[in-house]
Design a protein around this nucleic acid. Structure first.
Length: 540
RNA sequence: GCCCCGUUAGUCUAGCGGUCAGGACACGGCCCUCUCAAGGCUGGGACAGGAGUUCAAUUCUCCUACGGGGCACCA
């Protein structure tokens, strides 16, 4: 059963919220939306959902544009490119939401609620204690609308809630799952307009999708459970609802929803790690989807255009795909190897040239460099993603490799806590500059009660993969926030693994053994043949 | 706790009543080779469990288990 197309042109959108780093999940959903639009000759819209004033930032918004452009997704309408249905930034559509809220107030499908946060907190606590689904108890539901309007007029702080049906069932048609049935008694009277006058996601999303003539809502599965609310909103406005397609969630190796704690989620990380955008996009196409060649074998490497031309969303598989970095690396290598050497060289140079950390990296490496070529030996770590810290992992056990007599050693669990604390402090740093970074690290070290040198060494190894590196704070600054945090999280993750200590020590021993063996072989060789065989070079 | 979604090897997937359960990453072996990659060949490895429907279930239905998501004045 194909995805129904009830209206044309097909119009789809992604609506990322600009809070934090541009997310790989945004690119994933964006990819399927963009491809679906292209497949049907429709439009793909980028809308910025910045109704959360506390968390939204302009830098994050800019970063989203950069990363989506990097990966090769193009939108037909958006805040930066304009379009007929603007503005495309929800913070600029306040009047539209207020007007629409009034319509719902007028037709009684919504009501004003004057309950305080404290009352709601108590209510939910009581419901939880009674093992009930926490939901609004309807205290203001039957308030006289005139009374509500009067109190609102008087400036009393309040929100607007959607009046949901209290019994019966809601049928949610999902293009991939069939009809999902919800008991209306589970549904909450969702807040539509917050007390700051801005809409919640639910309201803004429905109003904008309608006004922007969105025909298909292709979004992540985490939204499935709120679709009944959205359907109720479409009904309240008397609008036709779009077709809903809920995509599976990208997962960590442990199958939980992909998160920065357990995976690099920032697109910027992949860009800096030297992943080609086309490989990244291709890899995302493989998540929950597959194409076959004539022999019936799965295709792995194919371009966006091919993906578009035979895209059939119904074939998306619903099991949450684990984001496997190993396979991404392999695919990336496939692309790299398929290039004409001249193109690879050009891409390589462009990769370096376009990196905005260039100057600061050069400054750090400069003091150590002996030739232009030698530069790469020192700078290499800045152009990689995860560094191979495996051999040095023993340094993550804080103090265990310390040569100092008064060293304080931390066990695995405590070392992990130290890393997590350091990460939290770095994340909270006001700016990504040497001073706040140093302050954060020193604070973490002091809290852990270990020697400064030992703590810094652990961080150094996690950051650079080596025990010798340019100055740490400057290196972290130059490396950049996204990559630095990923590497530190990787170190913390390693400490969380049972076998980490054994592996690290085994690796260390292997290292020593290998050296010893090499020396032995050399010594044996010298013994066996004290006189070097004919050395033509020497004689010549 | 309640509700919803899902479940083919460690991972990504094909399969839409009868297949030797196909491909890919990863892993092992062999070949190629000055090394390392790459490449070629090759090996091990999967239908979560239980009922039912059927001549026949990986495939359809139900139950259980497990995994995930949701239950905000966050999206």
């Amino acid at each position: 059963m194909p995805i129904p197309v009830n209206r044309t042109p097909v119009r789809v959108r992604i609506a990322p919220s600009p809070t934090g780093d541009p997310h790989v999940g945004t690119a994933y959903i964006g990819l399927f939306n963009a491809a679906f639009a292209r497949h049907h000759g429709g439009q793909f819209i980028l809308r910025i959902e910045d109704t959360d004033q506390k968390r939204s930032t302009r830098q994050s918004e800019e970063a989203i544009y950069r990363s989506l452009r990097w990966i090769g997704l193009q939108w037909d309408e958006g805040p930066d490119v304009g379009g007929a249905c603007g503005p495309y930034r929800q913070s600029e559509r306040g009047a539209i939401y207020r007007e629409h809220t009034q319509r719902l107030l007028d037709n009684r499908t919504a009501y004003r609620c004057f309950c305080t946060a404290e009352r709601l907190d108590h209510m939910r606590a009581a419901q939880r204690a009674a093992k009930l689904t926490p939901r609004y108890d309807g205290f203001c539901r039957d308030l006289d609308p005139k009374e509500g309007a009067r109190r609102a007029q008087a400036g009393e702080e309040h929100v607007v809630r959607l009046r949901m049906d209290q019994d019966g069932e809601t049928f949610v048609p999902d293009a991939l799952r069939g009809t999902v049935v919800y008991d209306n008694r589970q549904m909450d009277d969702q807040v539509l307009l917050k007390s700051d006058g801005l809409p919640t996601y639910h309201l803004a999303n429905v109003v904008d999708d309608h006004l922007m003539a969105i025909t298909h809502v292709i979004r992540a599965e985490e939204w499935l459970n709120s679709t009944p609310k959205h359907l109720a909103l479409y009904a309240a406005f008397g609008w036709e609802a779009p077709v809903f397609v809920h995509m599976p969630l990208l997962r960590n190796a442990d199958k939980s929803k992909i998160s920065k704690r357990k995976n690099p989620t920032s697109l910027e990380f992949y860009q800096r790690a030297g992943i080609l955008p086309e490989a990244m996009l291709n890899f995302l196409m493989l998540m929950g989807y597959s194409r076959k060649d004539d022999a019936g074998a799965d295709l792995e490497k194919f371009p966006f255009d091919a993906f578009v031309s035979d895209l059939d969303l119904c074939r998306v598989s619903l099991g949450g795909p684990v984001f496997d970095l190993k396979k991404l690396d392999w695919l990336n290598g496939l692309y790299l190897r398929a290039m004409p050497p001249a193109e690879l060289a050009e891409r390589e140079l462009a990769f370096l040239r376009e990196d905005d950390r260039q100057a600061s990296i050069a400054q750090l490496v400069q003091e150590r460099v002996t030739s232009l070529g030698d530069y790469f030996d020192h700078a290499g770590t800045f152009y990689a993603g995860l560094c191979d810290a495996g051999l040095q992992a023993r340094y993550f056990l804080i103090g265990c490799c310390s040569k100092k007599k008064n060293a304080v050693q931390l066990d695995r669990a405590r070392s992990k806590l130290f890393f997590e604390d350091a990460i939290a402090r770095l994340e909270a740093a006001p700016t990504w500059q040497p001073e706040p970074i140093e302050a954060a690290l020193r604070a973490a070290i002091e809290a852990a009660g270990v020697l400064v040198g030992d703590g810094m060494m652990a961080i150094r190894v996690a950051i650079s993969g080596r025990t010798a590196s340019p100055p740490l704070y400057e290196s972290i600054t130059a490396l950049g926030r996204s990559v630095s945090l990923v590497r530190l999280r990787a170190a913390a993750g390693l400490l969380g693994e049972e076998r980490m200590l054994q592996d690290a020590l085994a690796a260390a021993e292997a290292e020593v053994d290998a050296t010893r063996r090499a020396l032995q072989v050399a010594a044996d060789a010298a013994q066996a043949k004290p006189v070097a065989p004919t050395s033509t070079l020497a004689e010549a």
